[in-house]
Amino acid sequence: MTESSEGHEGSEGQGDLFAPLSRETARIIRFATEIAETAPERPDFLHTVLCQVGLPRRATEGLRFERRNGIASLLVEAGSLYSNQTWMQQPLPYGPKPRLALVHISTEAVRTKSPVVEVGRSLHDFMRRIGIGTNGRDYRTFRLQMRALSACRMTLGYGNTTIDAKPIERFSTWRAPDGSDDLEAGIIQLTTKFYESLVDAAVPLDPRALAALQGSSLALDIYTWLSHRLHRVARVTGERVTWANLASQFGQEYHDTRDFKRTFQRSLLSVRAVYPDARMDEVRGGYILLPSRPPVPKTIIGGARLEAS
């Protein structure tokens, strides 16, 4: 079963070599060229946990979803929002849009050193800040995804330890279910636990890479994982990850292992285009992760954090 998220995973065929480039491919090539030539002006950030275990990538019927990575597991549970004297059940957040929103919110929290993040005077304003299209379909989808994200509960399990990892404490914008405009700037307030651990364990990301991969939740997940993992590899000979490891971490949405492998490899090509310093060798049964430079130089990371001081 091919993943059917908001992105394009699994939808590309072999095609004609002389066929026009898709919009997604052209975008990746454009950003890959820029990334190869210049460093980012300043980084984006995401919590280390969410770089290892992410949200669902496609719509899920149930109200609970679990993502595993080794002995770590992230449990995402759908919540409810109170509006017009009614509790409204929300679905589980999924796809690229809530991922990009979490990156933006986390980045602003790290830069401003505050758990309270202003998200603009309207939903359109917030979407423009993230770099998401504001047409009618994107608007409706993003609105629904933001409600789902703000209401959901996240719990991290590690070994025999259970940690409350819910990211959003308060959501005070785009509340009216009838779609009426907000009259004042909205805010999202992170929970104290999430904010404090974010400041201590924020993974720097190249915003241009995120922009290039914005159409694929799987590519975004692979990129953030490699950004967290590769520069931590200490052994010169590298660390091995098997296809079983990768399927456990990234493949819950797939019933066919071969389908997952094909889609992962295709997404990895896009990721490596915008993370050219990523070093990994494909071997029988999986990959060898090799010591690599992070996607954002340490000098730029330090400068970004000093800027927010």
Rank of each mutant, 00 (worst) to 15 (best):
A101Q: 07
W225Y: 14
I168F: 00
Y275S: 05
I28T: 10
T224R: 15
F250T: 11
I163N: 02
P204R: 13
G15L: 03
W174N: 04
L226I: 04
R272Q: 13
T242S: 12
V49S: 01
L289Q: 02
N69G: 09
F194Q: 00
T86F: 05
E196P: 01
V274K: 06
E24P: 11
L63A: 08
L190M: 09
I35E: 02
L246S: 10
R235N: 11
K166F: 01
A32I: 07
D206T: 12
A202L: 10
A101P: 07
Y287T: 05
S309A: 14
P295H: 06
V199M: 13
R68P: 12
P167E: 12
I187T: 14
R229E: 02
I130D: 05
G159C: 10
Y195K: 04
M280C: 08
N245Q: 12
L123K: 00
G10F: 02
I163T: 01
Q214G: 15
L269T: 09
P56S: 03
L205Q: 08
G186S: 05
Q265N: 15
T38C: 07
S292E: 10
I300D: 01
R140G: 10
V117F: 01
Q249R: 15
Y94L: 01
V117H: 07
V236G: 07
S5I: 11
E307C: 00
E12P: 08
L74P: 06
R240K: 06
A39G: 10
L123R: 03
A165Y: 10
T60F: 02
I130K: 00
A148D: 11
S150M: 01
A109I: 00
C152G: 03
V49G: 02
R67I: 04
Y195V: 04
A234P: 00
S197F: 04
L74Q: 11
F264Y: 13
I188M: 11
E282A: 09
A247R: 11
R235L: 11
A244G: 09
L17K: 15
A209R: 15
R137V: 15
T33D: 13
H124D: 01
T25Y: 08
I301R: 00
Y275Q: 08
F142M: 14
P276K: 13
R111Y: 08
A151W: 02
P43D: 09
L46M: 04
P297L: 03
V117G: 02
F194Y: 10
T86G: 03
R121S: 03
D125W: 03
A185L: 05
L213A: 06
D178G: 11
P43M: 03
E118I: 00
R57D: 07
A202V: 11
D256L: 00
Y94T: 09
L268C: 05
S309T: 12
T107N: 00
K298F: 01
L123T: 06
T141Y: 07
Y254H: 01
T191P: 13
L269C: 01
